[in-house]
């Protein structure tokens, strides 16, 4: 195919240029906006959507002057870029510029600072200072993904509150987070409006006492919950089951609790059931698994719960298609 040489871009009207820009990748837009002031202005009028963006530590260079990377993933073209030129302020400015267009809605914003280095705290401090200084800049993302060392926990609540609660669909938390912090998070609009949660502790963090403490009442409104926990009490699990059973939830709403098998006595949960304990086969007929079917108030739907050494998972299914619905949800989730 011929190149576009001799193409007279300037002869296109702005509306037509905008249509080309809308169909260009994020990186191409970044480069086009440097071509001229008018192109910069046009590019900034087009909202950004199909990208994931986040800050991540420099995993190869844990020195005092190592800088957090600003990383961008173009989900459509499956291309990744990272950027660490300049200082934190430059990268924070780049990050904020993406959200200058109020119609921008990115897929995911993540903060990936697993190491206990000294760089993340100053970084978060600068990020919040900049965001506070520009209150019109609201982070528009479908997914808030926090995977940080405990040292950064002090900034978690403030950072989450910079996200537009109306567009947030999923919150992921990965790291050691105190019970008080989770409670504070659960009181935010961002948390209350979110329907999907993915919460985990990392085995590398060691002590089971440091598990993320998420009470079932915090996730009562959730449609999809995936939690990895060291241990969870039987009454907490029973409360979660009752929440799912008693509220009007969509088919395929689910919860999945991955529990450390050494500590998990799943048979204790059966003692709490307020219905006859009846094992119905869904995904497995193993003797180490119990599958219970719970009637729901919504006609035609049932809650199917499977307990095993590995944890508990439950899914709202159509009464006539239990196997199909249950397997589809958890095969995809696995």
């Amino acid at each position: 195919m011929s190149e576009l040489t001799e193409f007279e871009w300037h002869k296109l009207n702005d509306d037509m240029k905008l249509e080309v820009i809308k169909r260009s990748s994020y990186l191409t837009r970044c480069r086009l906006r440097k071509c001229s002031k008018s192109d910069k202005s046009l590019v900034d009028r087009v909202p950004i959507s199909e990208i994931e963006i986040g800050f991540a530590e420099d995993e190869y260079r844990h020195t005092e002057d190592s800088k957090p990377y600003l990383m961008v993933h173009d989900a459509v073209n499956d291309e990744n870029w990272s950027y660490n030129k300049g200082d934190d302020k430059d990268r924070i400015a780049d990050f904020m510029r993406i959200f200058n267009n109020r119609n921008t809605l990115v897929r995911r914003v993540y903060f990936d600072f697993f190491s206990d280095d000294s760089n993340s705290c100053p970084f978060f401090s600068k990020l919040l200072t900049e965001l506070d200084a520009h209150p019109k800049c609201i982070i528009q993302s479908e997914h808030f993904d926090w995977r940080c060392h405990q040292a950064s926990e002090q900034y978690l609540l403030q950072v989450l509150e910079k996200f537009d609660s109306h567009n947030l669909k999923k919150i992921s938390l990965n790291g050691i987070i105190s019970e008080e912090k989770v409670k504070a998070l659960s009181e935010t609009d961002q948390w209350k409006n979110t329907s999907k949660f993915d919460i985990a502790t990392s085995p590398s963090f060691g002590e089971l006492d440091n598990d993320v403490k998420v009470k079932s009442e915090y996730i009562q409104h959730a449609e999809n919950v995936h939690m990895k926990v060291g241990n969870m009490k039987g009454d907490e699990i029973w409360q979660l089951i009752k929440n799912y059973r008693e509220s009007d939830r969509n088919v395929a709403s689910f919860f999945m609790l991955d529990v450390d098998q050494e500590y998990f006595e799943w048979k204790d949960v059966l003692l709490l059931f307020d219905v006859p304990v009846t094992n119905v086969s869904v995904a497995s007929e193993s003797s180490t698994t119990h599958t219970q079917r719970f009637e729901m108030s919504t006609r035609g739907r049932v809650l199917v719960v499977e307990l095993s050494n590995y944890g508990v998972k439950g899914c709202v299914c159509r009464e006539e298609q239990i196997d199909e619905d249950f397997n589809r949800v958890f095969n995809e989730e696995d």
Binding site: V43, G54, W81, K85, G86, D145
Partner: peptide
């Protein structure tokens, strides 16, 4: 500097953390 003009120096990078 990138603040006015967009990301001026973008390099290939590893994949982002998985969802």
């Amino acid at each position: 500097s990138s603040s006015e003009d967009g990301m001026s120096e973008i390099s290939l990078s590893p994949s982002p953390p998985p969802i």
